[in-house]
Amino acid sequence: MLTALHKHLLNDFQRDFPLSSRPYLDIANALGVSEGEVLSALTELNDKHFISRIGPIIPPNQLGVSTLVAMAIPEQQLQTVADMISAYPEVNHNYEREHCFNLWFVVIATDSRHLQAVLDAIEQETGYKAMSMPLLDDFFIDLGFKLDLHHA
């Protein structure tokens, strides 16, 4: 069950988290609660896996290169192959999707040589073909996501 404070923390600080010495105190002052309450509410949200982290969103291809990779894996092999792929530190998202290409993951690296080496290693380790679709253009300005928490 989410409290009013939880809901404010989830929705109101996705974009302009304070860049100040005591950011949680600034948030507390903005919401009329104590810093301690903000810290415990955020810890609860974290523990319940409602938030992934507090941090920056960095557009792809600013610090390196990235690609989206699709693989078609037989169902009974999927968990094993997915685990192999998740173990690569260069992989940051890894999802099963409803399609014959059923495994989709993002690989990032500081340069394209390293990226290619990771793709080669994944193909070799798993024995399946990795179809790579590098990013060409990014149209979206991620300003956060307004959650409807009415019934949450």
Binding site: S52, R53, G55, I58, P60, L63, G64, S66, A82, D83, I85, S86, P89, E90, V91, N92, H93, N94, Y95, E96, R97, E98, H99, F101, W104, F105, I108, A109, T110, D111, R113, H114, A117
Partner: peptide
């Protein structure tokens, strides 16, 4: 349309040096 099923991994982008 590809709906997601299981999420095996999700985290921030961490760029690995070779």
């Amino acid at each position: 349309i590809l709906f997601s099923r299981r999420c095996f991994k999700q985290r921030g982008a961490i760029y690995q040096r070779a």
